[in-house]
Amino acid sequence: MNRRGFIQSTGAATLALALPQRLQARTTLEHGGTRIDMLSDGYLELPADMMLENMPQDELAEVLARHGLSGDQFEPPCNLVLLRDGPRVVMFDIGAGPDFMPSAGHMMQAMDSLGVAPEDITHLVITHAHPDHIWGLLDDFDEPLLPNAEVMMGRAEWDYWMDPDTVESIGAARQSFAVGAQRRLVEVEEHVSLFEDGAEVLPGIQAMSTPGHTPGHMSFVLDAGGQGLIVTGDALVNHHLAFERPEWHSGSDDDLEQAAQTRLRLLDRITADDLTILGFHLPEGGIGRAERLADNRYRFHAGV
């Protein structure tokens, strides 16, 4: 057994005993010959004021109370999309890996439960390069976790994180994001292919620019056996405020106004085309639908 195999086998056994049940949940969707599994990578522990400080406080309290949210910390789930379609085994984002926070970086347990090994992944499609989405690119020995995967990323997102000036311009609170992204992307650079907005990155998978959370953030519209689906990454970062008040500015975004306009445009497209959402931080496995209400208000419904 090589050293990666040893880590995977012993790590999966340890996590199965140590992690709470919510880290082991997954949701499966099948259409025609396509199967989609939502794999849990764990959850984040985030200070609530990071997201809420720019929002109208008088209205905010009512929305939070209605969703049972209180306290000074949010714990959003992290859901990775695994698509299997004939010889293709495609992952959308790769999770946080071992270096971001203890509650995240656990998707190997979910993969193991499906009998899927890192060597089986043929393509890795990246929405954006924040730590919880790409820091899992490397294993504990700084080797690529997915040795056989083509890594696919929007050109604007790649250029932003690989620009040496980003480390200085991103702000002190997020400098580690830039350093971590560059270190990991350099290690997989020879396996990377870049694409533009609107490109069919793989048959049945079309890139859709959804900037604001990061400068080059991409979502992906999928045709799975005639069913329309959309991988939204962090363009819709939660199931409450992002849907009910998409125009409010979230502190988790790079460009506050651009991200708000992206949410409005994206939710309009999702409801108009009746797309099923595959959401990275959405609850109950991350699969659901959006209902259009009045005045640019929407509601998230978990489930198929």
Rank of each mutant, 00 (worst) to 15 (best):
A178Q: 12
E187Y: 00
G180Q: 06
A178F: 11
E187T: 13
A207C: 08
E189N: 07
H191I: 02
E196V: 07
L194E: 10
E196C: 07
V186E: 15
V201L: 00
Q206N: 10
V186A: 13
Q175T: 15
I205T: 04
E189G: 09
V186N: 11
D197I: 01
V186F: 08
E189F: 09
F195E: 05
I205H: 00
R183S: 14
E187Q: 13
F177L: 06
E200M: 10
L202G: 04
G180C: 03
A199M: 03
V188F: 04
P203R: 04
R174M: 12
Q175E: 14
D197E: 14
F195K: 02
G204P: 03
G180S: 05
Q182N: 08
R174C: 09
A181T: 07
A199C: 07
A178N: 09
A199T: 15
A173D: 15
V201Q: 01
E200Y: 02
L185K: 04
L202K: 02
Q182I: 09
Q206A: 13
V188T: 02
E196G: 05
Q175F: 01
P203Q: 06
E196T: 12
V192M: 08
A173Y: 11
R174Q: 11
A181L: 05
L202F: 02
S193E: 14
Q175W: 01
Q182K: 11
G204M: 07
A181H: 01
V192E: 06
L202T: 11
R184Q: 05
P203G: 07
R184E: 09
L202R: 03
A207I: 00
I205S: 00
V188Q: 00
A181I: 03
E190H: 12
L185P: 10
P203D: 13
A178V: 13
Q182W: 04
G204F: 04
V201S: 05
Q182E: 14
A207R: 00
G204K: 04
G198Q: 07
A199W: 00
E200C: 04
S176Y: 11
E196I: 06
V192W: 01
L202W: 05
V179E: 15
G204T: 11
